[in-house]
Amino acid sequence: MMWVAVILLGILAIPITTELMRSGMSDAQRAKAPGQFALLSQGTTHYEWLGPDRGPVAVCIHGLTTPSFVWRGMAKGLALMGFRVLVYDLYGRGYSDRIRGDQDADFFDRQLVDLLGDQNIDGNLTVLGYSMGGAVAAHFTARHPQRVKQLILLAPAGMFELAGSRIALARDLPIIGDWLFLAAYPWEVRRGIKAEEHLPTSVDGIYDLQHAETTRRGYFPAVLSSLRGLLRTTCEDQHRAIAAAGVPVLAVWAEEDGVIPLSCKDTLAEWNPNAHKVVVPEAGHSLPHTHTDRVLEAIRASRG
Score class of each variant (00 low, 15 high):
residue 290 T to K: 00
residue 151 L to C: 08
residue 202 S to F: 06
residue 62 H to P: 03
residue 98 R to L: 06
residue 70 V to W: 08
residue 303 R to D: 14
residue 194 K to W: 11
residue 196 E to N: 06
residue 225 S to K: 08
residue 167 I to A: 08
residue 60 C to F: 15
residue 262 L to F: 04
residue 72 R to P: 00
residue 18 T to A: 15
residue 180 L to S: 13
residue 231 L to E: 07
residue 1 M to K: 08
residue 17 T to C: 09
residue 186 P to N: 11
residue 205 G to P: 00
residue 193 I to E: 02
residue 79 A to Y: 11
residue 245 A to I: 13
residue 111 Q to K: 07
residue 110 R to N: 12
residue 81 M to L: 15
residue 27 D to W: 12
residue 254 A to S: 08
residue 12 L to E: 12
residue 192 G to C: 02
residue 91 Y to M: 04
residue 274 N to H: 10
residue 143 R to W: 08
residue 158 G to R: 00
residue 28 A to P: 02
residue 280 V to H: 03
residue 275 A to F: 04
residue 269 A to P: 02
residue 76 K to E: 12
residue 18 T to I: 14
residue 297 E to M: 11
residue 135 A to N: 00
residue 291 H to I: 10
residue 141 T to H: 00
residue 102 D to L: 09
residue 277 K to D: 13
residue 300 R to T: 13
residue 280 V to P: 01
residue 9 L to F: 03
residue 218 G to K: 11
residue 80 L to C: 12
residue 251 A to G: 10
residue 167 I to T: 11
residue 159 M to T: 13
residue 143 R to E: 10
residue 256 E to S: 07
residue 168 A to G: 08
residue 70 V to T: 13
residue 76 K to G: 03
residue 37 F to G: 09
residue 193 I to T: 06
residue 70 V to P: 04
residue 107 F to H: 03
residue 172 D to T: 03
residue 275 A to Y: 03
residue 182 L to E: 14
residue 30 R to I: 13
residue 78 L to H: 05
residue 42 Q to V: 10
residue 7 I to H: 02
residue 212 A to L: 06
residue 260 I to V: 15
residue 270 E to W: 05
residue 72 R to D: 05
residue 266 D to L: 02
residue 125 L to C: 09
residue 162 L to Y: 13
residue 147 R to V: 07
residue 233 T to G: 01
residue 151 L to G: 06
residue 23 S to V: 10
residue 29 Q to G: 10
residue 98 R to C: 06
residue 217 R to K: 07
residue 232 R to H: 05
residue 76 K to M: 05
residue 135 A to M: 01
residue 1 M to P: 13
residue 142 A to V: 05
residue 260 I to E: 12
residue 234 T to C: 04
residue 208 D to M: 04
residue 8 L to K: 06
residue 242 I to L: 00
residue 26 S to Q: 05
residue 202 S to A: 14
residue 30 R to N: 14
residue 236 E to T: 06
residue 302 S to P: 10
residue 211 H to K: 10
residue 237 D to Y: 07
residue 253 W to M: 04
residue 175 I to K: 14
residue 140 F to L: 07
residue 209 L to F: 07
residue 245 A to H: 07
residue 288 P to Y: 11
residue 83 F to Q: 04
residue 70 V to S: 15
residue 70 V to R: 09
residue 61 I to M: 05
residue 179 W to E: 15
residue 74 M to T: 13
residue 127 V to A: 02
residue 289 H to N: 04
residue 2 M to S: 14
residue 21 M to W: 12
residue 6 V to Y: 01
residue 203 V to N: 06
residue 147 R to E: 07
residue 281 P to T: 11
residue 228 R to A: 14
residue 5 A to M: 08
